[in-house]
């Protein structure tokens, strides 16, 4: 996974609330058996509308997406995160995210930044014309107009994103601890191993 430290660039001033992952990537795109190439299907339905931000040359290739409340609700499809990554998005900023989506985003090197609605409103305004600067180390979102918004992030997620770490590799390093748990659980709850069908 690529390291993520500082992201600077234009941002899609999207702002829509309750964007479900069916909107991010419709189901017919889920038939792939690969992680790449899904950017073509990102926001497919919305992109049929003339004047949508995703096809506006002003924002082409923006690494940041500014969204509304409850972004990524609904289906657990990680294809939503893959589609955003394929579109070149590295940071999504919103007042809140669904739990499943923010986990999926993180696992694909996408930073989800939670900021209050007032900050979102301000960033939506700036994004119309100017770039936005996100610094993961400092946990800040800033603009050239002296805006400075501090955000919270889980320390483990921060550590992994900064280092581009592979979470599975890290956990496999604890195989002994997992084995010890399994042995204990098998003693306490022997029925956990399924009966043979």
């Amino acid at each position: 996974m690529d390291k993520l430290t500082v992201v600077e660039g234009r941002a899609y001033p999207f702002g829509m609330k309750n964007v479900d992952t069916d909107i991010v990537i419709p189901a017919h795109w889920l038939k792939t058996i690969s992680r790449s190439g899904l950017g073509k299907g990102a926001f497919e339905v919305l992109r049929k509308e003339p004047g949508n931000v995703f096809d506006d040359p002003e924002y082409a290739g923006s690494p940041i997406l500014i969204a509304g409340d409850n972004f990524g609700c609904g289906s657990s499809r990680e294809h939503a995160a893959w589609a955003l990554a394929d579109l070149g998005i590295k940071v999504v900023i919103a007042p809140s995210f669904s739990d499943i989506f923010s986990g999926n985003a993180f696992k694909n090197g996408i930073l989800t930044v939670v900021l209050p609605q007032e900050a979102i409103d301000r960033l939506m305004e700036v994004a119309q014309t100017d770039p936005i600067h996100v610094d993961l180390e400092q946990q800040t979102v800033t603009t050239q107009f002296q805006d400075r918004f501090q955000f919270e992030i889980d320390p483990f997620r921060k550590h992994c994103l900064l280092g581009g770490l592979d979470e599975i590799g890290l956990t496999l390093g604890q195989a002994d601890t997992i084995g010890a748990y399994e042995a204990r659980a098998a003693g306490e709850r022997p029925w956990l191993v399924p009966a043979v069908a």
């Binding site: 992680r35 657990s76 499809r77 990680e78 294809h79 995160a81 499943i100 986990g103 999926n104 696992k107 694909n108 979470e167 599975i168 956990t171 496999l172 195989a175 997992i178």
Partner: peptide, 11 residues
């Protein structure tokens, strides 16, 4: 998500 599916399969 799928990355977690992989994590559970492996660990």
């Amino acid at each position: 998500g799928t990355s977690e599916v992989e994590h559970v399969l492996a660990t």
